[in-house]
């Protein structure tokens, strides 16, 4: 009975965390999957989101405004970064290097402004309930709910708006996008900003649940990248499924192993998947 409830708890907790992971992954999927820009700085946008949420909550005395303000600020940071790197964004190697520069700059800025000591933000909802014998905060449920709403909004933007259509078409058919209104450079800027804002929102939502450090972005970045590539570039929904699967597997593995071994096992699994995933292309290219 003990074991069953442990597994059930691992599963459910995995799903809840997976939804947060799906949110930040879907942001990268817009930037990398749709626009084709290799954005190493994505984890740093998430980190900035968490720090800004912590900072604003302390200043304003309440957490809730951060949910709107932080994505806006981080989205703006994203647009700024994209503007700087516009000349090299088509080149994979150079955009890795350039966005890595953005990573270092953002991480360094956080370190200068707020220091390296881990920050904690008290949960805006203190109440909790018993989940298979373990105390579970209502806030986590709410955070997952907000993430789901954001994901549905993203779906709406991508599938049902003119901007979303352009965003999906811009890589395959640059000419077409030029011909039909929104200039291509704007689509890139706005798309990058949208992706960064999603990472910022994700950072805001997890801020009350984790310890906030300048390095937290780099830790999550590799995971997010793996999820986006493993799920298939540009396929936003696959990435959501993969994020949840990853989180559940990791949750279960860490139930049975110590955290480090669990993490190692998960990484090996995804690495194998990444290397041996068959490529659905007929030519030898």
């Amino acid at each position: 009975m003990e074991l069953v409830s442990q597994i059930l708890f691992g599963l459910l907790n995995g799903v809840i965390w997976g939804i947060s992971l799906a949110l930040i992954s879907s942001g990268l999927n817009v930037i990398f999957g749709l626009l084709g820009i290799v954005n190493v700085a994505h984890g740093s946008f998430y980190m900035m989101g968490a720090f800004l949420a912590w900072f604003l909550s302390l200043r304003l005395g309440t957490f809730w405004p951060a949910l709107l303000l932080v994505p806006a600020i981080v989205g703006f940071l994203g647009i700024l970064a994209e503007f700087l790197l516009k000349p090299v964004e088509k080149d994979h190697s150079l955009s890795v290097l350039g966005t890595f520069g953005v990573t270092l700059a953002l991480q360094g800025t956080a370190l200068v402004l707020w220091g390296g000591a881990p920050k904690r933000l008290t949960s805006p909802i203190q109440a909790s309930f018993s989940l298979f014998g373990t105390g579970y905060s209502y806030y986590r449920i709410l955070a997952a709910g907000v993430s789901i709403v954001a994901l549905i909004s993203l779906w709406f933007i991508l599938e049902r708006t003119n901007f979303g259509l352009k965003l999906r078409a811009v890589r395959e058919d640059a000419d077409l996008s030029v011909a039909s209104g929104i200039p291509v450079p704007w689509i890139y800027s706005l798309g990058f900003g949208l992706g960064a804002a999603l990472a910022g929102l994700s950072g805001t939502l997890v801020a009350p649940m984790v310890s906030i450090t300048p390095e937290m972005g780099l830790r999550i970045f590799a995971v997010v990248f793996l999820i986006v590539i493993a799920g298939g570039l540009g396929r936003v929904w696959n990435a959501v499924t993969f994020a949840i699967a990853f989180s559940v597997v990791r949750g279960l593995l860490t139930t049975f192993f110590d955290p480090t071994s669990g993490l190692i096992a998960t990484f090996i699994l995804v690495l194998v998947f990444l290397l041996f995933r068959p490529n659905p292309v007929t030519s030898r290219r």
Partner: peptide, 11 residues
């Protein structure tokens, strides 16, 4: 500020 400097330098 060294990391910030290196980041901006790289960009």
């Amino acid at each position: 500020i060294y990391p910030v400097f290196v980041g901006l330098l790289l960009i």
